[in-house]
C-alpha cells in the first residue's frame, strides 16, 4: 500500500523510519514508519493516548527519539533543534496551541514569520482564510474563543510559509460546527498546494480531507492505506466511525 500517494513521483517531504520515542525512558511510540509526499494530505488517526502527540513531538525534536530517524526535505532532522526544523519549513500546530496569550493577534502572526519581516501577501492570505482574525487583530490571544485561538495557531504557523503543516487534533475543544469550519479552511489550504499532516480523533473529518491515513493504536501503526480503504475497513468503522 506504500505506493499509494498524492501525486505520482511527487518528492518525498517527510520520512519517518522505525521511530520509537517516549518519556523518562519508557517508549510510548514503537517502531513507527510513515512518509508524506509533496502536495499530499495525510492523517494519523487514533484514540486518546494512542501516541499521536508523542509521534509529532518526536518529529519536532520536542521529545528525543530512542531509535529511528526523521528526514525532512532531504535532511536528517532526528536530533535537529525544534526552532531549526520550523525554519526549514515544517510548521507544527500542537493541540495545546502554545499561543502568546498576552500578545495581540497581529503580534502572534508577526512572530510566526520570525526572524524575517512578515510578508504582506502572506498576511493577507491568512486574513483571507480566517477573516475572523482580521476582525480581531488587536485583541489579546488569551481573550479569544477556542475556535478563534485554533485559527490563530494555524495562521501563525502559515506565516512561516511552511512546506509542510503538521497539526495535532486541530478540533480539540471545538463545537462540531467549528470543527467542520476548521476542516473547510484546511481543505482550502490543501487546494492551494500546501502539504498537510493531521492527527485526529474526529475521524470522519480527517478521512474526508486526506488521501492517505495511518491508524495508530497503543503506539503502533495497525493499518495504513488510502482514506477510502480506511473508511471501508470494518475495524475502523467500528472503532472510529461509530458504525455498529
Amino acid at each position: 500500500m506504500t505506493g499509494v500517494s498524492g501525486g505520482a513521483g511527487a518528492p518525498r517531504l517527510l520520512q519517518v523510519a522505525g521511530l520509537s520515542a517516549g518519556y523518562s525512558g519508557e517508549d510510548v511510540v514503537h517502531d513507527v514508519s510513515l512518509h508524506v509526499d509533496e502536495g499530499e494530505a495525510v492523517t494519523v488517526i487514533g484514540s486518546n493516548g494512542a501516541g499521536k502527540s508523542t509521534l509529532f513531538r518526536a518529529i519536532m525534536s520536542l521529545v528525543t527519539p530512542s531509535s529511528g530517524t526523521v528526514t525532512f526535505d532531504g535532511n536528517d532532522v532526528t536530533t535537529t533543534a525544534t526552532h531549526r526544523i520550523t525554519r526549514m519549513g515544517l510548521a507544527y500546530v500542537p493541540a495545546e496551541r502554545h499561543l502568546f496569550g498576552d500578545m495581540s493577534v497581529a503580534e502572534n502572526l508577526l512572530l510566526g514569520s520570525y526572524p524575517r519581516r512578515p510578508d504582506p501577501e502572506r498576511l493577507a492570505m491568512v486574513y483571507d482564510v480566517f477573516p475572523r482574525l482580521a476582525e480581531r487583530r488587536n485583541q489579546h490571544a488569551r481573550t479569544m474563543s477556542g475556535g478563534e485561538q485554533q485559527m490563530l495557531a494555524v495562521g501563525r504557523a502559515l506565516m512561516s510559509k511552511p512546506k509542510l503543516l503538521m497539526l495535532d487534533e486541530p478540533t480539540t475543544g471545538l463545537s462540531p460546527l467549528l470543527a467542520t469550519e476548521a476542516y473547510r479552511a484546511l481543505a482550502e489550504l490543501k487546494a492551494g498546494g500546501l502539504t498537510i499532516v493531521v492527527a485526529e480523533q474526529q475521524v470522519p473529518l480527517a478521512l474526508e480531507l486526506a488521501q492517505r491515513g495511518y491508524v495508530l493504536e497503543n503506539g503502533r501503526f495497525t493499518l495504513e492505506g488510502t482514506t477510502d480503504e480506511l473508511a471501508d475497513d470494518p475495524e475502523v468503522q467500528r472503532a472510529y466511525l461509530g458504525v455498529a
Binding site: R87, L111, R117
Partner: peptide, 22 residues
C-alpha cells in the same frame, strides 16, 4: 523582531520554539 522574540519566550517557551526562535 528580537524584542518580540524576548517577550514570546517569556510567555511561552515552546510556542517560541515553534515559530523558529532559539
Amino acid at each position: 523582531a528580537l524584542g518580540r522574540g524576548v517577550r514570546s519566550v517569556i510567555q511561552d517557551e515552546q510556542g517560541a520554539m515553534l515559530v523558529g526562535i532559539d
